[in-house]
Design a protein around this nucleic acid. Structure first.
Lengths: 188, 188
DNA sequence: AACTAGCGAACGAACGATCGTTCGTTCGCT
DNA sequence: AGCGAACGAACGATCGTTCGTTCGCTAGTT
C-alpha cells in the first residue's frame, strides 16, 4: 500500500461526489475509497468543501479551455458549433467524474465559491450563444432565440454525464457524430 | 396556525428535495418549512425515505400518464413526437419540484424502490424510442439510431427542471414551441 | 349551554449513529 | 534524525427517529 498524494484525494472526491453526491459522501467514505481513515485525509486537504471547490473548478477549467480555443479560431459559425459540440463530448467522456461533479454538485458550493463558478458557467454558455447568434446572422441557422437555442444544445451535451458509460453501445466518436447531426439540423 | 396534512408534508418534501437535494435536506429543515418541529412530521409519515419514494412516484406517474395517452392515439409518428414534447414541457412547468425530484433524486432511493422507478423510466423512454423509430420507418425522420435520438430529445426536455423559472423571459408555451421546432428539425 | 371524553397533531427531550474536524501519537521512508 | 503520511481516539454538532406528554378541536351527553 503506497502512500497517497493530494492528487489522489481530489480524484477520488470527484469520483464519489459524482456517484453519490456531495452530501451523500462522507469523509470516511472518501477515506475508504483510498484505503485510509477519514481523518487521514486532512494531511492532504483543509476541508470537505475545499475538495468540492477544487473538483468543480477543474471541471470548469476544462470547458473554459475548449470555449477559448474555439472562440479564437476564425472558422464560420456553423463549424464553430460543431467544434464546440465535439469538444464538449470529448471533455465529458474523457473526464466523466469531474464533469459530472461540476455540472451537478456546483450548487452545493459555499456562497462565495459558487458565484465564481456561476460566472464561468455563464461565460461558457455565452460562447455558445454568440456563436449561434453569428450563425443566425450569417444565414447558416434559421431565425430563432439564441439564448434558448444555446440552452437546448447544452442540454443535449450535459446530459451525457448522466448516461455515458465507456463500455456502452456507442463510443465517444459515434456519440459526437450523432450530436453534431442532431444539433446542426435542430438549429437548421 | 392551522394544522398540517400529510399532503402538505409531501409537497414541502418535493420542494426541498428539489432545491437542496435529498441528502441536503434534514427532517428538521422540512419541519421548519412547515412551521413544525422535525419530530412532528412523524405524525404524518413513516420515514424520510418514504417521503422520497412518494414524491418520486408521483413524478413518475405524471410522465407515465402522458406517455400512455400519446401512445394510445393514432396520429402519425411526427405528431406523436410533438405531442410528447409539448406534454413533457407541460408536466415539468406545471409540477417543477416533483419533476425535479423525480429526475434528479431518484438515484438516492433505497434499492427496492429504485428498481421500480427505473422500470417506469425505461418504459417512458421506450415510448419515445418507439415513436421515433416509427417516424424513421415512415420516412418522416432520417435514418438514425432511435435509442440515441430518444436520449437526445429527452435531454433537451429534462434539462428544463434545471433552468425553467415561471417568471423567466419565455413562458411555457413559447418554450414548448421552440423545443418542438428544435427537436423536429434535429430528427429531420 | 356547559361539560367532557376522545383523538389526531404537535411538542420537546432524548436515543444512538454519524457527521466534519482536531490533535497527539506512531509509522515508514530518506 | 527528520518529516510527511496515517492512525485512532475524541470533540461538538447534527442526523433520523422514538416516545411520553400536551394541545386543540369535535362529538356526544347532560
Amino acid at each position: 500500500m503506497t502512500t497517497r498524494s493530494r492528487e489522489d484525494v481530489v480524484q477520488a472526491a470527484g469520483r464519489l461526489f459524482a456517484a453519490r453526491g456531495f452530501h451523500g459522501t462522507s469523509m470516511r467514505d472518501l477515506g475508504d475509497e483510498l484505503g485510509l481513515l477519514g481523518s487521514s485525509l486532512y494531511s492532504h486537504v483543509d476541508s470537505k468543501e475545499q475538495l468540492l471547490i477544487e473538483v468543480v473548478q477543474r471541471g470548469a477549467a476544462l470547458f473554459q479551455a475548449l470555449a477559448d480555443s474555439v472562440a479564437a479560431s476564425d472558422s464560420p459559425p456553423e463549424d464553430k458549433v460543431a467544434a464546440l459540440v465535439r469538444g464538449h463530448v470529448n471533455v465529458i467522456t474523457s473526464n466523466q467524474e469531474q464533469s459530472a461533479t461540476f455540472l451537478n454538485e456546483a450548487r452545493f458550493l459555499p456562497a462565495d465559491g459558487r458565484t465564481a463558478i456561476v460566472v464561468l458557467r455563464d461565460r461558457y454558455e455565452a460562447t455558445f450563444r454568440e456563436v449561434i447568434a453569428a450563425g443566425i446572422a450569417s444565414g447558416a441557422f434559421r431565425e430563432q432565440n439564441p439564448a434558448l437555442a444555446s440552452i437546448m444544445v447544452l442540454s443535449v451535451l450535459n446530459a451525457l454525464t448522466r448516461w455515458y458509460r465507456p463500455t456502452g453501445a456507442q463510443n465517444a466518436t459515434e456519440i459526437a457524430d450523432a450530436m453534431v447531426a442532431f444539433v446542426m439540423d435542430g438549429l437548421r
